[in-house]
Simulated scan of single mutants.
Amino acid sequence: MNENEVEGVAIANLIAADEKTIVGWVYRWNTGALAIRWDMHGPQRVSRIYPDLSDADKAEIDFASLTQLPCRDD
């Protein structure tokens, strides 16, 4: 990464409630911050993160609220 630019790298997949579909990605920015990028359907319920993240990282992206979002088919 270039230290003069803000850049991010995908570090984990967000897995949908169906346990097989990737619905988004967790990115770590060179600033240290985490952010979520959703697929073209936008935010939806997440069942897990793969690979798993630390509890602190999950808290930063508010994983608990991601498990409560409506499913794509709701």
Rank of each mutant, 00 (worst) to 15 (best):
M1S: 15
N2V: 13
N2W: 00
N2L: 11
N2A: 12
N2D: 15
E3T: 10
N4E: 14
N4A: 12
N4G: 13
E5W: 10
V6W: 00
V6E: 09
E7V: 14
E7L: 15
G8C: 09
G8F: 07
V9I: 14
V9Q: 14
A10D: 10
I11C: 08
I11K: 02
I11A: 07
I11L: 05
I11Y: 05
I11R: 02
A12D: 10
N13Q: 10
L14S: 01
L14V: 00
L14F: 03
I15C: 06
I15P: 09
A16Q: 05
A16K: 06
A17I: 12
D18H: 01
E19P: 00
K20P: 03
K20H: 12
K20D: 13
I22R: 13
V23N: 08
V23I: 15
G24M: 09
G24N: 07
G24V: 04
W25E: 15
W25D: 15
V26I: 13
R28D: 02
R28F: 01
W29E: 12
W29M: 12
W29K: 11
W29N: 12
W29F: 14
N30A: 07
T31P: 03
T31H: 01
T31Q: 03
G32P: 02
A33P: 01
L34Q: 03
L34G: 02
L34T: 03
A35W: 11
A35Q: 13
D39G: 12
D39I: 11
H41T: 14
H41V: 13
H41A: 14
G42C: 04
G42V: 07
G42K: 00
G42M: 04
P43W: 03
P43V: 01
Q44G: 04
Q44R: 09
R45N: 03
R45M: 11
R45T: 07
V46A: 07
S47Y: 09
S47W: 02
S47K: 11
S47C: 12
R48Q: 12
R48Y: 02
I49W: 08
I49M: 06
I49D: 06
Y50L: 14
Y50C: 10
P51Q: 02
P51A: 09
D52L: 02
D52Y: 00
D52R: 01
L53E: 00
L53H: 05
S54I: 10
S54T: 15
A56T: 12
K58P: 01
E60P: 03
E60F: 11
E60D: 11
E60R: 13
I61Y: 03
D62L: 10
D62P: 06
D62Q: 08
F63N: 05
F63V: 07
A64M: 11
A64K: 14
A64F: 09
S65V: 06
S65N: 09
S65C: 03
L66S: 02
T67R: 11
T67A: 09
L69T: 01
L69S: 01
L69E: 01
P70M: 02
C71A: 07
C71F: 08
C71D: 08
C71L: 11
D73E: 10
D74L: 09
D74K: 09
D74M: 11
